[in-house]
């Protein structure tokens, strides 16, 4: 469906995208995850034909977009990062206009309008001007406009920024339905939770480069630490209280800050009882226990040495 081959783009001397490649198949959601300034929007712009890559190429259904009026553009739906709606028009009028730009009219257009408005839950507000919508409603309409001409490839650039959890869920359900209908979706975000929940495969990028590409499970198994045991102590302790613990075979990492001990473990079932036994042997009494599953956050941390949120 979509083949991106080693695309590059520089603005002045700064390389915004540097040799990125990816593939996307029908019925798949590919996550493009990266911090601010990673080059996600620039990548999206090149895929959508808005920017010409300095090097490399983008193929949709096996060929490049040629010219403004290439029918291949009909296969593509773009949800821009910023709202792309005429605020003075109603939802319906926005859809009529963009439908006309894709050559839709008459009954086909009416049916398509009803379909997308219902799928984003805005059918009863269709006659209100967009200026009167809430931020989340605008986001949903922003998505609906891109779905109107039923594209086979949908590119979403951070479509859930500033959306409440309910609207976000509504958007996710729409996207999952599209995947089920065999559409190919490229989903750009800097929220790991979104990528974790939604995406079949995830590309992690930073500073214009691809750092990793895999399924969520695949990315997690690359980590030296799959699980973290967190133990809180009330009494005043220092790191020296745990001397010798890090040399145990099952412990792959160990930190102690502000009364919380974090121990990286490979096997939850076998290793947790062992570690707790060792602590009890030393006469240490903990006040609270929990286990963390490793997340994309840790993957990003491991790949870049920075937290995604701080990046």
């Amino acid at each position: 469906m979509l083949d991106v081959l080693k695309i590059e783009k520089a603005f002045g001397t700064r390389k915004a995208v540097d040799g990125l490649s990816l593939q996307l198949r029908p019925g798949e959601i590919l996550g493009l995850l990266g911090p601010n300034g990673a080059g996600k929007t620039t990548t999206v712009a090149m895929i959508a034909g808005l920017l010409i890559p300095d090097a490399g190429e983008v193929r949709i259904q096996g060929r490049k977009i040629q010219g403004d009026q290439d029918p291949l553009k009909r296969q593509l739906g773009l949800v821009p990062q910023d709202m792309a709606l005429y605020e003075d028009l109603t939802a319906e009028e926005n859809l009529t206009l963009f439908g006309a730009l894709y050559g839709l009219g008459g009954k086909d257009l009416e049916a398509a309008k009803v379909r997308v408005l219902e799928s984003v839950g805005l059918h009863d507000r269709r006659k209100d001007s967009v200026a009167t919508y809430s931020g989340g409603m605008k986001r949903r309409l922003n998505l609906a406009v891109a779905l109107l001409h039923d594209p086979a490839l949908l590119i979403l650039d951070e479509p859930t920024v500033g959306v409440d959890p309910q609207s976000r869920n509504a958007i996710f359900e729409t996207l999952e339905a599209l995947r089920a209908a065999g559409k190919a979706l490229l989903y750009t975000t800097h929220y790991m939770e979104e990528a974790e929940r939604l995406c079949d495969r995830i590309v992690i990028m930073d500073s214009g480069r691809m750092l990793a590409e895999d399924t969520l499970g695949g990315l997690l198994t690359r980590l030296p630490v799959a699980n973290v045991l967190c133990v809180d102590f009330d009494s005043e302790l220092t790191l020296s209280a745990f001397d010798g613990l890090e040399t145990e075979a099952c412990v792959s990492s160990l930190t102690f800050t502000r009364g919380r001990l974090r121990v990286g473990l490979q096997d939850l079932c076998l290793d947790v009882p062992r570690v707790l036994q060792k602590l009890a042997d030393r006469g240490l009494r903990w006040s609270h226990l929990e286990c963390e599953r490793s997340s994309l956050e840790n993957v990003f941390l491991a790949l870049t040495g920075r937290s995604l949120r701080d990046a």
Partner: peptide, 15 residues
């Protein structure tokens, strides 16, 4: 300068 421009330019219409 707006995102609408991107939307218009991805549509299959002449500039």
């Amino acid at each position: 300068r707006s995102a609408l421009w991107k939307r218009l330019r991805t549509a299959p219409i002449g500039r």
